[in-house]
Design a protein around this nucleic acid. Structure first.
Lengths: 93, 93
DNA sequence: TAAAGCGGTTTATAATATAAACCAAATATT
DNA sequence: AATATTTGGTTTATATTATAAACCGCTTTA
Protein backbone atom coordinates (compact mmCIF):
# COMPACT_ATOMS: atom_id res chain seq x y z
CA UNK A 1 0.00 0.00 0.00
CA UNK A 2 1.25 3.43 -0.94
CA UNK A 3 2.23 5.96 1.68
CA UNK A 4 -0.08 8.91 2.18
CA UNK A 5 1.89 12.16 2.29
CA UNK A 6 1.45 13.24 5.91
CA UNK A 7 1.60 16.90 5.01
CA UNK A 8 -1.51 16.52 2.89
CA UNK A 9 -3.22 13.92 5.04
CA UNK A 10 -4.73 16.50 7.38
CA UNK A 11 -8.23 17.79 7.00
CA UNK A 12 -7.47 21.48 7.11
CA UNK A 13 -4.31 21.37 5.01
CA UNK A 14 -6.08 19.23 2.44
CA UNK A 15 -9.00 21.65 2.34
CA UNK A 16 -6.64 24.57 1.79
CA UNK A 17 -4.79 22.76 -0.97
CA UNK A 18 -8.03 21.71 -2.56
CA UNK A 19 -9.15 25.33 -2.74
CA UNK A 20 -5.81 26.58 -3.98
CA UNK A 21 -5.71 23.90 -6.68
CA UNK A 22 -8.71 25.43 -8.37
CA UNK A 23 -8.40 29.10 -7.67
CA UNK A 24 -4.88 30.26 -8.42
CA UNK A 25 -4.79 32.64 -5.45
CA UNK A 26 -6.71 32.98 -2.21
CA UNK A 27 -6.18 35.16 0.81
CA UNK A 28 -6.18 34.32 4.50
CA UNK A 29 -9.64 35.64 5.20
CA UNK A 30 -11.17 33.77 2.30
CA UNK A 31 -9.51 30.50 3.29
CA UNK A 32 -10.63 30.96 6.86
CA UNK A 33 -14.24 31.43 5.82
CA UNK A 34 -14.29 28.63 3.29
CA UNK A 35 -12.69 26.12 5.62
CA UNK A 36 -14.50 27.35 8.74
CA UNK A 37 -11.28 27.13 10.69
CA UNK A 38 -9.96 29.32 13.48
CA UNK A 39 -7.33 31.88 12.53
CA UNK A 40 -4.72 30.22 14.75
CA UNK A 41 -5.17 26.81 13.26
CA UNK A 42 -5.15 28.17 9.74
CA UNK A 43 -2.01 30.17 10.40
CA UNK A 44 -0.16 27.11 11.68
CA UNK A 45 -1.25 24.91 8.79
CA UNK A 46 -0.36 27.52 6.19
CA UNK A 47 3.09 27.69 7.72
CA UNK A 48 3.46 23.95 7.37
CA UNK A 49 2.34 23.94 3.77
CA UNK A 50 4.69 26.79 3.10
CA UNK A 51 7.61 25.13 4.90
CA UNK A 52 7.01 22.04 2.78
CA UNK A 53 7.21 24.15 -0.34
CA UNK A 54 3.63 23.36 -1.32
CA UNK A 55 2.38 26.94 -1.25
CA UNK A 56 3.76 30.45 -1.28
CA UNK A 57 2.49 33.01 1.19
CA UNK A 58 2.74 36.64 0.18
CA UNK A 59 2.03 39.48 2.55
CA UNK A 60 0.93 42.73 1.04
CA UNK A 61 -1.44 45.62 1.52
CA UNK A 62 -4.82 46.59 0.24
CA UNK A 63 -5.09 50.22 1.17
CA UNK A 64 -3.91 50.25 4.75
CA UNK A 65 -4.96 46.72 5.58
CA UNK A 66 -2.66 43.78 5.41
CA UNK A 67 -3.47 40.96 3.06
CA UNK A 68 -1.94 37.51 3.08
CA UNK A 69 -2.26 35.77 -0.24
CA UNK A 70 -1.58 32.10 -0.87
CA UNK A 71 -0.81 30.24 -4.04
CA UNK A 72 -0.04 26.61 -4.67
CA UNK A 73 3.43 25.94 -6.08
CA UNK A 74 4.29 23.51 -8.83
CA UNK A 75 5.69 21.19 -6.18
CA UNK A 76 2.45 21.45 -4.23
CA UNK A 77 0.42 20.71 -7.30
CA UNK A 78 2.46 17.61 -7.94
CA UNK A 79 2.25 16.45 -4.34
CA UNK A 80 -1.50 16.94 -4.35
CA UNK A 81 -1.89 14.88 -7.48
CA UNK A 82 0.27 12.11 -6.10
CA UNK A 83 -1.71 12.15 -2.90
CA UNK A 84 -4.94 11.76 -4.87
CA UNK A 85 -3.46 8.83 -6.78
CA UNK A 86 -2.31 7.16 -3.57
CA UNK A 87 -5.70 7.66 -1.96
CA UNK A 88 -7.48 6.12 -4.90
CA UNK A 89 -5.79 2.83 -4.14
CA UNK A 90 -7.34 2.97 -0.67
CA UNK A 91 -10.78 4.02 -1.77
CA UNK A 92 -11.12 1.63 -4.70
CA UNK A 93 -11.93 4.40 -7.16
CA UNK B 1 -16.66 21.64 3.24
CA UNK B 2 -17.73 18.31 4.64
CA UNK B 3 -16.14 16.89 7.75
CA UNK B 4 -13.81 13.96 7.31
CA UNK B 5 -14.61 11.21 9.82
CA UNK B 6 -11.55 11.27 12.08
CA UNK B 7 -11.79 7.56 12.76
CA UNK B 8 -11.27 6.84 9.10
CA UNK B 9 -8.90 9.71 8.38
CA UNK B 10 -5.86 7.80 9.55
CA UNK B 11 -3.58 5.98 7.18
CA UNK B 12 -3.50 2.65 8.96
CA UNK B 13 -7.18 2.54 9.91
CA UNK B 14 -8.12 3.50 6.39
CA UNK B 15 -5.88 0.79 4.98
CA UNK B 16 -7.47 -1.79 7.26
CA UNK B 17 -10.96 -0.70 6.32
CA UNK B 18 -10.05 -0.66 2.66
CA UNK B 19 -8.93 -4.27 2.88
CA UNK B 20 -11.92 -5.36 4.91
CA UNK B 21 -14.31 -3.69 2.48
CA UNK B 22 -13.28 -6.07 -0.26
CA UNK B 23 -12.49 -9.25 1.55
CA UNK B 24 -15.25 -10.10 4.00
CA UNK B 25 -12.85 -11.38 6.64
CA UNK B 26 -9.15 -10.96 7.37
CA UNK B 27 -7.03 -12.00 10.31
CA UNK B 28 -4.50 -10.05 12.32
CA UNK B 29 -1.47 -11.59 10.68
CA UNK B 30 -2.78 -10.92 7.20
CA UNK B 31 -3.64 -7.31 7.97
CA UNK B 32 -0.24 -6.81 9.52
CA UNK B 33 1.53 -8.09 6.42
CA UNK B 34 -0.65 -6.24 3.95
CA UNK B 35 -0.40 -2.93 5.74
CA UNK B 36 3.26 -3.36 6.75
CA UNK B 37 2.45 -2.10 10.20
CA UNK B 38 3.86 -3.09 13.57
CA UNK B 39 1.75 -5.41 15.69
CA UNK B 40 1.36 -2.78 18.40
CA UNK B 41 0.12 -0.11 16.08
CA UNK B 42 -2.25 -2.48 14.37
CA UNK B 43 -3.63 -3.72 17.67
CA UNK B 44 -4.39 -0.18 18.83
CA UNK B 45 -6.04 0.82 15.57
CA UNK B 46 -8.15 -2.33 15.42
CA UNK B 47 -9.36 -1.50 18.91
CA UNK B 48 -10.40 1.94 17.78
CA UNK B 49 -12.23 0.68 14.74
CA UNK B 50 -13.92 -1.88 16.93
CA UNK B 51 -14.83 0.65 19.62
CA UNK B 52 -16.37 2.81 16.91
CA UNK B 53 -18.49 -0.12 15.79
CA UNK B 54 -16.85 -0.17 12.35
CA UNK B 55 -15.46 -3.70 12.63
CA UNK B 56 -15.93 -6.82 14.70
CA UNK B 57 -12.95 -8.63 16.11
CA UNK B 58 -13.35 -12.33 16.82
CA UNK B 59 -10.75 -14.34 18.65
CA UNK B 60 -10.67 -18.03 17.93
CA UNK B 61 -8.31 -20.94 17.40
CA UNK B 62 -6.82 -22.71 14.45
CA UNK B 63 -5.51 -25.91 15.97
CA UNK B 64 -3.72 -24.68 19.03
CA UNK B 65 -2.87 -21.23 17.73
CA UNK B 66 -4.95 -18.19 18.37
CA UNK B 67 -6.47 -16.38 15.45
CA UNK B 68 -7.95 -12.91 15.50
CA UNK B 69 -10.37 -12.36 12.66
CA UNK B 70 -11.79 -8.99 11.61
CA UNK B 71 -14.86 -8.12 9.64
CA UNK B 72 -16.34 -4.80 8.65
CA UNK B 73 -19.80 -4.13 10.06
CA UNK B 74 -22.70 -2.59 8.21
CA UNK B 75 -22.06 0.61 10.13
CA UNK B 76 -18.42 0.52 9.09
CA UNK B 77 -19.34 -0.03 5.50
CA UNK B 78 -21.63 2.97 5.60
CA UNK B 79 -19.06 5.16 7.32
CA UNK B 80 -16.44 4.17 4.77
CA UNK B 81 -18.72 5.08 1.89
CA UNK B 82 -19.58 8.41 3.43
CA UNK B 83 -15.91 9.09 4.00
CA UNK B 84 -15.20 8.39 0.35
CA UNK B 85 -17.97 10.76 -0.69
CA UNK B 86 -16.69 13.48 1.60
CA UNK B 87 -13.15 13.05 0.32
CA UNK B 88 -14.25 13.32 -3.27
CA UNK B 89 -15.32 16.88 -2.61
CA UNK B 90 -11.76 17.63 -1.53
CA UNK B 91 -10.07 15.81 -4.36
CA UNK B 92 -12.29 17.11 -7.16
CA UNK B 93 -13.11 13.60 -8.40
C1' DT C 1 -8.53 59.15 23.26
C1' DA C 2 -10.55 55.08 24.49
C1' DA C 3 -12.71 51.13 22.87
C1' DA C 4 -13.72 47.78 19.50
C1' DG C 5 -12.48 45.19 15.12
C1' DC C 6 -9.51 43.22 11.83
C1' DG C 7 -5.79 40.26 10.47
C1' DG C 8 -3.12 37.64 11.95
C1' DT C 9 0.96 34.97 15.23
C1' DT C 10 2.60 32.56 19.27
C1' DT C 11 2.00 29.45 22.83
C1' DA C 12 -0.28 25.98 25.53
C1' DT C 13 -3.11 21.82 25.62
C1' DA C 14 -5.35 17.86 24.17
C1' DA C 15 -5.56 14.14 21.05
C1' DT C 16 -3.19 10.89 17.85
C1' DA C 17 -0.15 7.87 15.87
C1' DT C 18 3.54 4.97 16.49
C1' DA C 19 7.02 2.09 18.38
C1' DA C 20 9.10 -0.16 22.21
C1' DA C 21 8.62 -3.15 25.85
C1' DC C 22 6.32 -6.74 27.41
C1' DC C 23 3.59 -11.32 27.95
C1' DA C 24 1.66 -16.10 27.44
C1' DA C 25 1.45 -20.10 24.76
C1' DA C 26 3.46 -23.06 21.28
C1' DT C 27 7.18 -24.89 18.89
C1' DA C 28 11.88 -26.02 18.07
C1' DT C 29 16.66 -27.00 19.99
C1' DT C 30 20.33 -29.34 22.88
C1' DA D 1 13.18 -32.53 29.81
C1' DA D 2 14.79 -28.16 30.29
C1' DT D 3 15.82 -24.02 27.61
C1' DA D 4 15.62 -21.03 23.86
C1' DT D 5 12.92 -19.10 19.99
C1' DT D 6 8.97 -17.88 17.59
C1' DT D 7 4.17 -16.54 17.17
C1' DG D 8 0.43 -13.65 18.07
C1' DG D 9 -0.65 -10.43 20.16
C1' DT D 10 -1.45 -6.27 24.35
C1' DT D 11 0.00 -2.48 27.21
C1' DT D 12 2.54 1.46 27.96
C1' DA D 13 5.53 5.24 26.88
C1' DT D 14 6.89 8.78 23.61
C1' DA D 15 6.88 11.82 19.85
C1' DT D 16 4.02 14.31 16.66
C1' DT D 17 -0.13 16.69 15.40
C1' DA D 18 -4.09 19.29 15.47
C1' DT D 19 -6.50 22.73 17.64
C1' DA D 20 -7.89 26.53 20.39
C1' DA D 21 -6.80 30.15 23.55
C1' DA D 22 -4.28 34.00 24.48
C1' DC D 23 -2.03 37.54 22.63
C1' DC D 24 -0.36 41.60 19.51
C1' DG D 25 -0.13 45.68 16.45
C1' DC D 26 -2.65 48.48 13.50
C1' DT D 27 -7.23 50.83 12.12
C1' DT D 28 -11.39 52.44 12.44
C1' DT D 29 -15.21 54.18 15.05
C1' DA D 30 -17.49 56.38 19.03
Amino acid sequence: MKELDPILHSQLRLAVMSILMSVDEADFVYLKEKTESTAGNLSVQLDKLSAAGYITVTKGFVGKKTRTACQVTEQGRKAFEEYVEALKSYLNL
